Amino acid sequence: MADPTKHVLVLAGLTVVSGALRAALHARAARGPAEFTLLLPASEDGAAGHRERLLVAVERLRADGLDVAGQLGDPDPLLAVRQVWDPVEYDEIVLSTFPPGRSGWLERGVPRALERATGVPVAHVVAESP
């Protein structure tokens, strides 16, 4: 019997187009069937730039053969996840940030807060600095 497809919520900001995130999603797909939803927190004043970054990331990953959708979310990463999180819909979370010292999300404790809010483990990907 084939493994069921897992639905993975991927939270990323500026790192959504990073090679590290791309490699992590390929590695996750290699472990078993997966569908990914890229969630990019974006402010209204910068939504056009965020939308373009998200579209580029989705197109690259689809071109690589991954099943990917994308959506913009609230500027606050925790609120963005809370607004879309459904434990029936999603099985896993992947969080992409810049390294410690460069990541406001790490300073705010976003990885642990996501685990508490959703009850699922959060795989953390550290992306290279731009």
Rank of each mutant, 00 (worst) to 15 (best):
V122E: 00
W105M: 14
R28F: 03
E59S: 12
L114W: 01
G109C: 08
H7L: 06
E128I: 07
W85F: 13
A127G: 06
A23P: 03
I93G: 01
V17G: 12
A123H: 12
P75E: 07
D86K: 04
R112V: 11
D3Y: 12
E92Q: 13
A48V: 15
A123E: 07
L95E: 02
S129Y: 14
P33G: 12
P41F: 04
V120T: 08
L11W: 02
E115H: 09
V120H: 01
V120C: 02
P77Y: 05
H124R: 14
A113W: 02
H26D: 13
E89Q: 15
W105V: 08
V94E: 00
T37R: 04
L25G: 00
R28H: 09
A24F: 04
E128F: 06
G73V: 12
V68S: 01
P87G: 08
E89C: 10
L54V: 05
D86H: 08
G32M: 10
A27G: 10
L78G: 14
T118C: 06
E107D: 14
A80E: 05
E128K: 14
V120G: 00
A127I: 10
A57Q: 00
V56K: 11
V68C: 05
P99N: 09
Y90R: 08
V126T: 15
P130L: 12
T15S: 12
R22M: 07
T5M: 11
L38R: 00
T5Y: 02
A24G: 11
G73C: 11
A24M: 10
P99S: 09
T5C: 09
G49D: 07
A42W: 01
L38F: 05
V110M: 05
D91C: 02
D86T: 13
A20M: 05
T97M: 07
Q71A: 13
P130E: 07
S96V: 04
A24Y: 04
T15R: 03
L55R: 15
V81H: 01
A42R: 03
G104I: 14
A20Q: 13
P4F: 06
R82D: 09
A2N: 15
E92N: 03
V10Y: 00
Q71W: 02
P77I: 11
E128R: 15
S129Q: 12
Q83M: 13
